[in-house]
C-alpha cells in the first residue's frame, strides 16, 4: 500500500470476504453475488487511482450497492412504487400477547432476500456493512431521515416475515 492507497490485490485479498458478504446479503444468492463482486472489483481496479484514503469499506459498500441497484433496475424495467407513508401499511398491528417469544426462527437470509430492496439495502448497509446513516444516505442519494425510516421499517417488516413464517 502506497500513500494509504491499497493495491487492487490487497483490496481483493483483505476485503474480498467483506465485499462478498455484502453482495450476498443484498442479492440473496451466490450467482448474483459473484457477478456483483467481480464487477465491483473491476470498478475498484479502475477507481483506485482516484480513491482518497478514508473509509475503504464505505467506498466498497457504495460500489457494490450501486451495482446491485443498477442491476435491479435493469431487471425490473418498471416504475418504482412510492414507499408507503403509513408504517401500519407495511407492518401489521402488534401481534397478540402470547407471541412474546423473542427468538427468531431460521431462514433469516431468505426473509432478508424477500424484503423489498428499498428496505433491504439500507438494512444490509447498516447491519452487515456497518455503515453509518450518513454514509448510507450518501450512497443512496437520499436524506438521512429517509435512511432512518427505511431501516426501521425494514427491520419491522423483517420481524413480521420471520414471525409469520414461524407460525
Amino acid at each position: 500500500m502506497a500513500d494509504g492507497i491499497p493495491t487492487w490485490e490487497e483490496v481483493a485479498r483483505d476485503y474480498g470476504r467483506f465485499l462478498y458478504t455484502v453482495a450476498y446479503r443484498l442479492a440473496g444468492n451466490d450467482d448474483d453475488a459473484q457477478d456483483l463482486v467481480q464487477e465491483a472489483l473491476l470498478r475498484v481496479r479502475r477507481g483506485l487511482e482516484r480513491y482518497e484514503p478514508g473509509s475503504l469499506e464505505g467506498w466498497l459498500a457504495r460500489i457494490v450497492t450501486n451495482l446491485f441497484l443498477d442491476d435491479m433496475r435493469r431487471r425490473k424495467r418498471r416504475p418504482t412504487s412510492a414507499l408507503p407513508d403509513d408504517p401500519d401499511r407495511v407492518v401489521p398491528p402488534t401481534p397478540a400477547a402470547d407471541e412474546s417469544s423473542r427468538e427468531l426462527p431460521a431462514h433469516l437470509q431468505e426473509a432478508l432476500a424477500a424484503l423489498p430492496e428499498d428496505f433491504r439495502v439500507p438494512v444490509v448497509l447498516c447491519d452487515v456493512a456497518d455503515q453509518s446513516y450518513e454514509q448510507i444516505a450518501s450512497t443512496l442519494g437520499v436524506p438521512v431521515g429517509t435512511v432512518r425510516s427505511r431501516i426501521h421499517r425494514g427491520r419491522r417488516l423483517l420481524r413480521t416475515t420471520l414471525t409469520e413464517g414461524a407460525s
Binding site: R17, Y20, D30, V37, R102, V128, R155, R156, L158, R159
Partner: peptide, 21 residues
Amino acid sequence: ILDEVRDTRDAVRRLPAVDGP
C-alpha cells in the same frame, strides 16, 4: 417495539460472513 427491533437487528448482525466458492 424496541425489543423486537433490537432482536431483529442483532439477528442480522449475527449472520455469518460469507465466503465465495
